[in-house]
Design a protein around this nucleic acid. Structure first.
Lengths: 110, 110
DNA sequence: CATTACTTCAGCAATCCTGAAGATATCTCT
DNA sequence: AGAGATATCTTCAGGATTGCTGAAGTAATG
């Protein structure tokens, strides 16, 4: 199985954190908050589409709400395969980051 | 500053681990060993070129060795900016992976 | 010139990115 | 009630960056 990309990992984790309230806008906000970086809304939807095609997430439509702009949202949940992909990436991360030599810094930037 | 990609992170960590012996072939072997996946040699050189252009690594030529195939190798070291990029990604990883709800698995695969 | 080890190369596939435009709900005004 | 105004969420087109492959090229010794 191919490793998931960095964005895919971060989007999956955002969905996990948002529990029942994970959709395009809240996911984007969560990413911005947690990473301290700007995330284009379109870029997030792009990753969500990819994760859906790979069946690492599944989507469902929420009921419309009786409030301004309360149109139906597309809610996302992580699938079993999605959790497995996260577990794989976590293991590799842990392995790669363990047993590093004390310091490798010998060259400065040009 | 833009986040480094997953491949860039893994290649940087491989160089770190290999200390004074980090070049195309040993880096590829190290990645295969640590991730348990096949890495095309060309793909690794591609990432190394990119990291060099971004000044996250610096390269130098080793002396040729008096043995079969002992031609000069291109050795890589991580620069100060490279270490900083790793530190950034580690912080974001730690933040994203902390405080996750107990379980988010409610949907199975289709 | 055979063999070994290392690097380059061309070109295609996948991922990442942007923000304006579109869709669907309620609110406000006459 | 009807007609915009406003709010929230999603789609879209197209370009930039990153990822991938293995055969061919280079430079050393046997």
């Amino acid at each position: 199985m191919k490793l998931i990309s960095r964005k895919e990992e971060l989007v999956l984790l955002s969905i996990w954190k948002l529990r029942d309230n994970a959709y395009g806008v809240t996911i984007t906000d969560q990413l911005a908050k947690t990473t301290g970086r700007y995330w284009s809304i379109g870029a997030v939807y792009d990753v969500l589409d990819r994760l859906t095609r790979k069946a690492l997430v599944a989507a469902s439509a929420s009921d419309p709400l009786p409030e301004r702009g309360g149109k139906s949202k597309r809610l996302y949940r992580i699938t079993k395969d999605g959790h497995q992909a996260l577990e794989e990436i976590r293991e590799i991360h842990d392995t790669m980051w363990s047993d590093l030599p004390e310091s490798a810094l010998e060259f400065e930037n040009p």
